[in-house]
């Protein structure tokens, strides 16, 4: 069983959803982001999304754009990100890692080579924002050969018919983009999420995580309660950015403040009850 499937299965027996925090690789530098990654499981991360910086993140809001820019300035490359994951795996064999990014850096690295090297580094799943199933044939076979899940995004705009099509190309879990918009801008209401879930459940047996616009512990608990997991990205990156000094360098506040926020999110998610959904 893959690390992703195993983790969701364990959480299901515990009757709770997953907290899935996000960090941008090399933000604001390799050492800090690796230290953050390594400390995330103990702070309460059940799965972790690691952003691969891209120069033109056209589906992301200002917070992730700036994080990506800091990462690139600090020298992030695809190879560097994979090395960072490998370093994490030396100490943690269980927490699933999902790489999230855009297609072009992967394409420049080589589709098959990327899948092989990512799996070797200990990556479990991929989310490529600008690779819809219509274009995914270039990556599906190499990912499957390497044992990597391709996690599919679905949105409120995705019709029932399209949902079946998209999810026939999905594995690992399903990422529900809860708002129509870019990352870190709006927040969907609990009612809107309650309404959306039955539609997804009818179309897939995979676990469903909700992302885009989840900022507070309460929102995370709600989302993780209604679905099977909550992704928190921009809120954490904002906190990280707030702790940087005038030159954009990490300070002694950077790790503690981000990790404390994750702890608060995890506490809320763990206290929340799993609702039928």
């Amino acid at each position: 069983m893959s690390r992703i499937a195993a983790r969701f299965k364990t959480l299901a027996t515990q009757g709770r959803g997953a907290l899935i925090p996000y960090l941008e690789a090399f933000d604001p530098d390799l050492e800090t982001s690796l230290a953050l990654l390594k400390a995330m499981p103990a702070a309460g991360a059940d799965l972790i999304e690691v952003g691969m910086p891209f120069s033109d993140p056209s589906a992301d809001g200002p917070v992730i754009q700036l994080a990506a820019r800091r990462g690139l300035k600090a020298g992030a490359t695809v190879a560097g990100v994979l090395k960072m994951i490998a370093a994490f795996r030396e100490q943690d064999q269980e927490t699933p890692i999902i790489l999230m990014g855009y297609l072009n850096p992967v394409e420049a690295y080589g589709h098959a080579r990327f899948c092989t090297d990512a799996a070797k580094a200990g990556v479990d799943g991929l989310i490529l924002v600008d690779l819809p199933p219509e274009e995914a044939d270039i990556l599906e076979q190499p990912a499957q050969d390497a044992g990597l899940d391709i996690i599919r995004l679905v949105a409120p705009t995705t019709s029932d018919e399209r949902l079946r099509y998209v999810l026939s190309h999905a594995s690992g879990f399903v990422y529900y983009v809860s708002i129509t918009g870019i990352t870190g801008t709006r927040t969907a209401s609990a009612e809107a999420l309650q309404e959306a879930l039955p539609r997804l459940r009818a179309a897939t047996d995979l676990p469903v995580a909700i992302g885009f616009g989840i900022r507070t512990p309460e929102q995370a608990a709600t989302a993780a309660g209604i679905a099977d997991g909550a992704v928190v990205a921009s809120a954490l990156l904002s906190t990280l950015a707030d702790t940087l000094d005038a030159d954009g360098k990490a300070t002694d506040q950077t790790l503690p403040r981000v990790l404390n926020q994750i702890k608060d999110l995890a506490t809320a998610v763990r206290a929340g009850e799993k609702k039928a959904g």
Binding site: L103, V129, P132, E134, E135, R152, A155
Partner: peptide
């Protein structure tokens, strides 16, 4: 049909939110 020229260029490389709009 997929918007490819010569089987290689073009296509629809966008986030899922935009796919229904493009269709």
């Amino acid at each position: 049909e997929r918007g490819h020229f010569g089987g290689r260029y073009g296509g629809r490389f966008v986030a899922e939110t935009l796919m229904p709009l493009l269709l």
